[in-house]
């Protein structure tokens, strides 16, 4: 399954505003994307509750995965988002 591993760049981590931007973007993808921290259980990237519960902070390495048509494009778009400081936008 295609995967992307990326380090959270947002200063406040993956919650508040960055979590909202990320889950909204995930919901717009045509393919379901999952996100996990390390070897943890993957959770749906379009669920803000699941994403918040990851507790990913600035500098945490997370892995995105997706399967099916458009998976690579979806992963690239979301990985790009996480590698930016979304608090600064």
């Amino acid at each position: 399954m295609p995967e992307r591993t990326v380090v959270i760049a947002s200063r406040t981590g993956l919650h508040a505003r960055p979590a909202k931007i990320f889950t909204e973007a995930a919901a717009r993808q045509t393919t379901p994307v999952r996100i996990r921290v390390g070897d943890g259980k993957p959770v749906p990237a379009n669920s803000i509750l699941a994403v918040l519960a990851l507790g990913a902070t600035h500098g945490t390495q997370v892995t995105l995965d997706a399967d099916g048509p458009g998976a690579d494009a979806a992963l690239d778009a979301l990985a790009e988002l996480l590698s930016r400081d979304l608090d600064a936008d």
């Binding site: 909202k20 909204e24 509750l49």
Partner: peptide
């Protein structure tokens, strides 16, 4: 506004 937007998103969360 941000608190309320996040709450709105949580209320619509597929996991919930």
């Amino acid at each position: 506004r941000e608190i309320l937007e996040a709450q709105s998103l949580i209320a619509a969360d597929p996991g919930l």
